[in-house]
Design a protein around this nucleic acid. Structure first.
Length: 736
DNA sequence: TCACCAACTGTGTCA
DNA sequence: CAGTTGGTGA
């Protein structure tokens, strides 16, 4: 059977393009993954490249796995060892292999965003910096967005308006943070990419080596790359190699973590891309669903332009339900799901989508009471659970004693008489001698010192005793000898935690099997050369890079619950999009961000296009949120759908009847903010959330209006130009 | 030092 | 509401 059979003309054209820069604009459900995997298989099969000459980048581990599965189904080759993975995974691999050149210890650990935040808090505390004046969250955001733009502290240029002491301090703290990470041998997510980029940039032989090796570079979800990832790709491509980029600007939904849709246009220009292929035939959804998606996305101004079509018939209309409350919405959903299951549909073919994780609780509650099996994706995931992070911290200390974050997490957990005073002394000593906390323990004497000494001894003996054990035994030894199991056994609510810790042992076994480590092989092999990292090191990377699911029960047939973000790339027979209320979806925070609303609309577009045959939209008149009842109105996104494709399941009130509220308002007891501003604020004809244009700063969004008359001022977010406060009577603002 | 409770706060999506 | 911080008493 030929690989290329049954591709449509556009798909075929894309798959067989010559080795030149190419941009594939692939609409939802147009066979994007198929094109990518078939091209890889075709390149290999036709002898144009060996499996080792391919670099394929995706955003999620799920997508990478899917790609490898499909390739191995098409070709009789061993896909293990192929360079197919996420940006973070591939960078990790490169940095491990060349840790010396990258100036990292071989055992460097990866910080997830929670670890990063606590490292930042520790930095501020250690330097007596007021964390009210410099909120750790803001600093984290500042550091990450700088890194995502490819900028070290020394390269961060403050715009002229921002060049004050306050902003300079942020840059200084950024630099101090990097120093701290370097001393501790840890890297955060963005650092993984930046360090790898710098490695290739500065090390010419290494760069040339990889440029010559990776003849074909393929990128999935190109619209979600950030500036740094794009630079990384350009560097690897060099002058000879072609990048085959697949993306859909209408599905760009990761701006909040630095994604830059502009990369698509930049790529087209900088690489003089002559091969642009549009895949517009949709094989997934019926007509009415597609019509809804097309109509919605047409409300966005910033688009490359694309219109999906299908040969399938119109199909069913999109069902819309208005519920009295979030609880009633869930009750209705349960009924509908029962009906679908009754018609013989698999539970796993039905998805319930929501904008934010917090919304899952009400739905879970209703499903649980109805006895419908379900599986929640996202939320608090396995490797993010407190007890698991504790166990991982012990493992990290075995690998890398300089990891102060891990040290502080478990030095007194379970409690072993080491309190705040002692740790303060220790931190002082460590700072004075520029050592890790672990190394500084020896310099402390007295009773406090002896408790610390016992802890260090515990870690040392664990490292010594587990040195030649397989991964499974190491993990088992750690959760036992650390006292974690014993500690949680005495807690009344601790049973689940004990089970999770035991599950961690299983996860280690599963990981070792999947990675091909022999079960009885010692876990600390490969100390020499640029060899493979030890299984323990690999397992720790895996835990950081892939937070894991929070519920096991793999193959079981269960209803699928997830955020819209998590649903990208998936498809289902029936899809419920819930909580379609102003303030929730679109999210209220998005309204004051430049382009925020368009991003929310793309998110809605992604949600709609997940459905093959049946689509439900629902919203609730009232909802419990953050402990108080909020009254909402239906999302503007429902209004943006053509009336003809909708089928209302609830009687509709006459539009405009009754009081229409401009935004969420607060019905709880807490006074202040929301209650004080029940309607949209306006000044001189401007309103909050409005997009305006300024001659010098470009496009911005009004986030605050103050004063009146000639003193009327507007606070405007100009994105990269910063937030400015302007006098409305002076600033010449154009309204879009 | 540590367990416990009260008060406070923030609240979006992810690798 | 849930997670965190701060204070108190044993």
């Amino acid at each position: 059977m030929n690989l290329l059979d049954s591709l449509n003309p556009q798909q075929l054209a894309a798959v067989t393009l010559p080795n030149q820069p190419a941009l594939i604009l692939a609409g939802a459900g147009s066979g994007k993954t198929r094109v990518l995997t078939t091209r890889i298989a075709w390149l290999i099969q036709s002898g144009q490249v060996s499996p080792q000459g391919i670099l394929a980048v995706t955003f999620t581990n799920k997508a990478a796995k899917e790609m490898l599965t499909r390739i191995s189904a098409m070709l009789p080759i061993n896909v293990r060892g192929m360079w197919v993975g996420t940006f973070h995974g591939l960078c990790n691999r490169l940095l491990r292999a060349h840790h010396r050149d990258a100036n990292l210890p071989q055992t460097f650990q990866i910080l997830d965003s929670a670890d990063q935040l606590s490292a930042i808090k520790r930095l501020l505390k250690g330097n007596q910096i007021d964390d009210e004046k410099y909120p750790p969250r803001n600093l984290q955001l500042f550091i990450n967005s700088a890194k995502e733009a490819g900028l070290r502290a020394s390269a961060v240029e403050l715009s002229s308006e921002m060049r004050d002491d306050y902003n300079r301090k942020f840059v200084e703290l950024y630099s101090m943070y990097d120093t701290q990470c370097q001393r501790e041998g840890v890297v955060d997510f963005a650092e993984l990419l930046l360090r790898c980029y710098e490695l290739l940039l500065k090390n010419e032989p290494l760069r040339t080596h990889y440029q010559e090796r990776f003849r074909h570079i393929l990128v999935d979800e190109f619209q979600d790359t950030n500036v740094l990832q794009y630079k990384w790709l350009k560097l690897l491509a060099g002058v000879h190699n072609a990048i085959f980029a697949v993306g859909d600007d209408d599905q760009s939904i990761y701006r909040f973590r630095g994604a830059n849709v502009g990369n698509m246009a930049d790529f087209e220009r900088e690489f003089r891309v002559r091969n642009v292929v549009k895949l517009e035939q949709n094989y997934r959804s019926h007509g009415h669903i597609l019509d809804a998606a097309n109509a919605l996305i047409r409300h966005n101004a910033q688009r490359l332009g694309k219109n999906l079509w299908t040969e399938a018939g119109e199909g069913e209309k999109v069902r819309v339900f208005e519920a009295g409350s979030d609880g009633l919405e869930a009750a209705w959903l349960v009924d509908e799901v029962r009906g679908l299951i009754g018609e013989g549909h698999l539970r796993s073919e039905i998805a319930v989508l929501y904008r934010s994780n917090a919304q899952s609780r009400v739905i879970e509650h209703a499903l649980f009471n109805a006895g419908i099996p379900y599986r929640v994706y996202g939320g608090l995931r396995f490797f993010e659970r407190a007890e698991i992070k504790h166990a991982l911290a012990y493992l990290r200390l075995i690998e890398n004693p300089a990891d102060d974050t891990a040290f502080l997490r478990v030095v007194n957990f379970p409690p072993r008489g080491i309190g705040a005073r002692t740790l303060e002394q220790l931190q002082d000593a460590a700072r004075a001698s520029n050592q890790s906390l672990y190394a500084a323990v020896g310099s402390l004497t007295g009773k406090a010192g002896s408790n610390l000494g016992a802890f260090v001894k515990l870690i040392d003996s664990l490292r010594f005793e587990t040195a030649n054990l397989p991964l499974k035994e190491i993990v088992a030894a750690v959760i036992d000898r650390s006292g974690l199991i014993a500690h949680f056994k005495t807690e009344k609510e601790g049973q689940e935690r004990v089970e999770n810790l035991q599950e961690l042992v299983n996860a280690a076994v599963g990981f070792a099997a999947e990675e091909g480590y022999a079960q009885d092989a010692p876990a600390t092999q490969g100390e020499t050369e640029a060899a493979l990292p030890s299984p323990l090191a690999a397992f720790l990377s895996h835990a950081s890079l892939e937070a894991g699911e929070n519920q096991a029960a793999e193959g079981a047939d269960a209803l699928q619950l997830m955020t819209v973000h998590a649903a990208k790339g998936l498809e289902f027979h029936a899809v419920f999009i819930t909580g379609l209320e102003e303030g929730l979806f679109p999210h209220e925070n998005s309204v004051t961000e430049i382009g925020g609303l368009e991003e929310e609309r793309r998110l809605m577009y992604v949600a709609i296009t997940r459905a093959r045959r049946r689509l439900y939209l629902s919203f609730a008149q009232q909802r419990m949120l953050h402990g108080q009842t909020r009254y909402g109105i239906k999302s503007r996104f429902i209004d943006e759908l053509p009336e003809g494709v909708l089928k209302w399941l609830t009687p509709r009130l006459r539009e405009g009847a009754g009081p229409r509220l401009g935004q969420w308002h607060d019905a709880g007891v807490r006074p202040a903010v929301a209650a004080a501003a029940p309607q949209v604020q306006t000044r001189n004809g401007y309103r909050i959330g409005q997009t305006v244009r300024h001659d010098r700063f470009g496009e911005g969004v009004i986030i605050k209006l103050e004063g009146s008359g000639s003193d009327a001022r507007a606070k405007i977010n100009f994105g990269s130009q910063g937030i400015k406060e302007l006098l409305l009577s002076i600033a010449k603002l154009q309204t879009a």
